[in-house]
Simulated scan of single mutants.
Amino acid sequence: MDEKVARLIQREGAAALLDRGVSVPLKDIRLPFRKPLRLRVVMRRPRLGGLIRLARVYLSLGVTAEQMNKFTKEEEMAFFATHGKQVSRMVAYTLCRGWISRRLLVGATAWVVRNWIDTEYVSAAMRSFVFLLGTDPFTNIIRSAERTNPMKLRLSQRDKGS
């Protein structure tokens, strides 16, 4: 693995651990005699229940992340025409992270995403989240944490268990 890829994985891992999220412009409100007021929402990594639901929706699309990155403009428009509701639902799962909000507000949030957020922002946010949802870069971290687990029995503790 070259240095550039390693740095990218480390940066994304740090962002995921800090739960920083991706800020997406929601709507521009134009006020007379003032600058436009830009409303923004922050898409964060969903918790496990939302992640499972998001993964189900993503797998129902039948398209991989590599294929999405290679879309032409016409293919992207055709993709949004056929899978627009599912994409907005995926984005809604990143906005409604709690158990109650996921149960009650995902449908309304998906409607807001479809009607208020620009298509370019939705597609870019979806691509970045699909890339961040993988677990391959974190397998080394998981192995390291497993080795340094303080609850695991050490060599001298196997006989007595204390």
Rank of each mutant, 00 (worst) to 15 (best):
E120C: 00
N69D: 10
V87Q: 00
P46D: 05
N115Q: 07
R89K: 08
S60C: 02
F80Y: 15
L8C: 02
L8K: 04
K4Y: 12
L59V: 09
L133P: 03
F131D: 10
L37F: 12
S23L: 09
E12Y: 10
I52P: 00
I29L: 14
F138G: 00
Y58G: 05
V106A: 12
R34A: 14
R40H: 10
V41N: 01
V63T: 03
R34G: 09
P137N: 03
V91W: 03
A108Q: 11
F80I: 04
G62C: 04
R89I: 00
I29F: 11
R56F: 03
G98N: 14
K70T: 03
L133N: 15
S60I: 02
S60N: 04
L31S: 02
R47P: 00
S123N: 15
V112E: 09
Y93H: 15
I9F: 10
L51Q: 03
E74M: 12
D2C: 07
I52Y: 03
R44G: 12
D2P: 06
Q86G: 15
P137K: 00
R38P: 08
E12S: 03
I9K: 05
M43F: 02
A15M: 13
V122A: 07
V112I: 07
G84P: 06
D28H: 07
R34N: 12
G84E: 02
F131M: 08
L51P: 00
K70Y: 05
R127N: 08
K70W: 00
P32H: 02
R11Q: 13
G49S: 04
G13Q: 14
T135H: 10
R20D: 00
V87T: 04
Y121R: 10
V91T: 07
R103L: 09
L26H: 11
L54N: 08
I9S: 00
F80K: 01
T64D: 04
M126I: 13
T135C: 02
R102E: 14
F138Y: 13
E3K: 08
L105F: 05
Q86N: 11
R20K: 10
E75C: 06
E74C: 07
M90S: 05
W116Y: 08
T94W: 03
L104P: 01
N140Y: 12
R30N: 07
A81H: 11
D2K: 11
P32L: 06
M77N: 00
Q86C: 01
L26F: 14
W111V: 03
F79I: 11
D19R: 14
E3R: 08
V63E: 02
T72Q: 01
R56V: 02
